[in-house]
């Protein structure tokens, strides 16, 4: 779904205006806009008749959502237990160093967002780094530069 074409009423209609579909609706907005814009959330509040504060509670509770705009490319480093034992923290450190930002932040030029995730379920190939949906297996600190250069 495209950010420009996002029509909250249409979206809500897709879910029959059901309050229980709030999370699903927010997920759709997140996918389209790469974050949850303030005005959009205000509209959702009115359309679904849910107090804005409740929507914010949900939006900030779940990690899938971001109230801040994300970068063009999403770099996610898995820090699950198996990946942790195999050296994921060093890889994450290296990304922080090379991008000049901390985990959870976005570079100033809005090119990269760096996040960590607790487990992607690919423990056999850890440490795992996902960039824009592409999985990189057995990442070492040497690979960090190579991965970033691709984008």
């Amino acid at each position: 779904m495209d950010a420009e074409k996002l029509n909250i009423k249409t979206l809500a209609a897709k879910y029959n205006y059901e309050k229980k579909a709030l999370i699903a609706i927010l997920q759709d907005i997140q996918e389209a806009c790469h974050y949850l814009p303030q005005e959009v959330l205000g509209e959702v509040s009115k359309t679904l008749d849910i107090p804005l504060i409740d929507i914010i509670s949900v939006a900030t509770f779940y990690k899938a959502f971001s109230l801040e705009p994300k970068g063009e490319h999403q770099v996610t480093v898995c820090v699950g237990t198996a990946c942790h034992i195999r050296g994921a923290p060093k890889v994450l450190d290296e990304f922080e160093k090379k991008l000049g930002i901390k985990t959870g932040q976005t570079t100033e030029d809005m090119k990269f967002s760096l996040d960590s995730v607790a487990c992607l379920g690919c423990c056999a190939i850890g440490p795992v780094v996902v960039v824009d949906g592409n999985y990189h297996a057995q990442t070492s600190i040497r690979d960090v530069d190579k991965i970033l250069k691709k984008y």
Partner: peptide, 11 residues
């Protein structure tokens, strides 16, 4: 939901 890091049998 399989949230345990390191578990992926459900997946």
């Amino acid at each position: 939901d399989e949230g345990d890091p390191g578990a992926y049998m459900d997946r």
